[in-house]
Design a protein around this nucleic acid. Sequence first.
DNA 1: TTTACTGTACCGGCTGGACGGTATAGTTGT
DNA 2: ACAACTATACCGTCCAGCCGGTACAGTAAA
Lengths: 187, 187
Amino acid sequence: MSKNVPASSVPTRDRLLDAFEELLVEGGERSATLDAVAAAAAVSKGGLLYHFSSKGALIEGMLARLDALAKEDAENIRTAPAGPVDYLIRTSVHTGSPLDRAYIAGSRLAQGRDPRAMQVLGDIRRRWLSVIEDAVHDPDTAEAIMLISDGLYVNSSLAEHELAPQEHTAESMTRLITLIGRILPQT
Amino acid sequence: MSKNVPASSVPTRDRLLDAFEELLVEGGERSATLDAVAAAAAVSKGGLLYHFSSKGALIEGMLARLDALAKEDAENIRTAPAGPVDYLIRTSVHTGSPLDRAYIAGSRLAQGRDPRAMQVLGDIRRRWLSVIEDAVHDPDTAEAIMLISDGLYVNSSLAEHELAPQEHTAESMTRLITLIGRILPQT
DNA sequence: TTTACTGTACCGGCTGGACGGTATAGTTGT
DNA sequence: ACAACTATACCGTCCAGCCGGTACAGTAAA
């Protein structure tokens, strides 16, 4: 009955957050019930409520972790060797990174009209846009690049589970970035 | 012989579909319950189930109408006086048109992982992409334009109810279209 | 033209299951 | 001893789907 598995090197709290995100990504808001989250994290329902006293607390915990990851990422974008635009576009297709998963999970909640999730996602986008604006020195160009990034995210999200409208391969991303080069202000 | 109810010139079936879409758009998947749909359409629950024998049937009815609207729209894009790209981009921000509403409603279901909704949305996107490809004669450029369109849709959807990351005005759309002009293959 | 019947459109109460949350008694590792 | 759980039972609410009605329009034979 006991899980003495060494898998529990990860704290239960984080495993619960991971399970919550996974359920949101795979099955949408409706499937992410407290019972399901507890089961997926191999924790009893009581155990879940020990760490997060309500579903709202679970959501806030998840959004807080997303926000922290996004802050790190903004710094990665700013200091990327190949440049912010290259980095942003390439990381806009899902790689299965913690930030990816957390971001999609947050999107699911935002689609469910959760105001906290909408707030956090809005903040993250503003942060990214600001970094790109600093890099390209033109608001309209920055906005266009952000739109492409947004589009990639959405498509990647739909494509994740079969039936992609189009594969976004490394080569196609390179061609896309070349194309974006044409809208950058001439230096 | 006249209808004693002049207000409901719209058939009940369509009013139910309208109400379903509205609830999906405004409140997400969770709020679009059968009771809520019936109430919003000023019909009893029994009346709803007379027209749509299950929630699945309601979803399928909504998606069928969306698909029909999208087919008309693809034709509008192809034959637009200002050109397909101009038309596609300008109609990617929400105007409150029936297609807009239906499309967002479909997106909500797709985020909830409904395979029928994902299928329909995928078909629609492929149709649009195909029209743009015919217009710009380059797959990569067409894909980039579609990504911007996707991005506009998502942002418009988040912006709809307060807290837009950025207003998308008529002027900013014109500037965006000018920018897109730079990635078109030289003629 | 009355009576009997049929189909369409709709009402509203009910049930069973799922979900969020509470409670509580017991267990395990440090 | 205390924190970190497990296990189980329970409550109120919400929801999808079901069912027994009602109202009425048309139709058709007597």
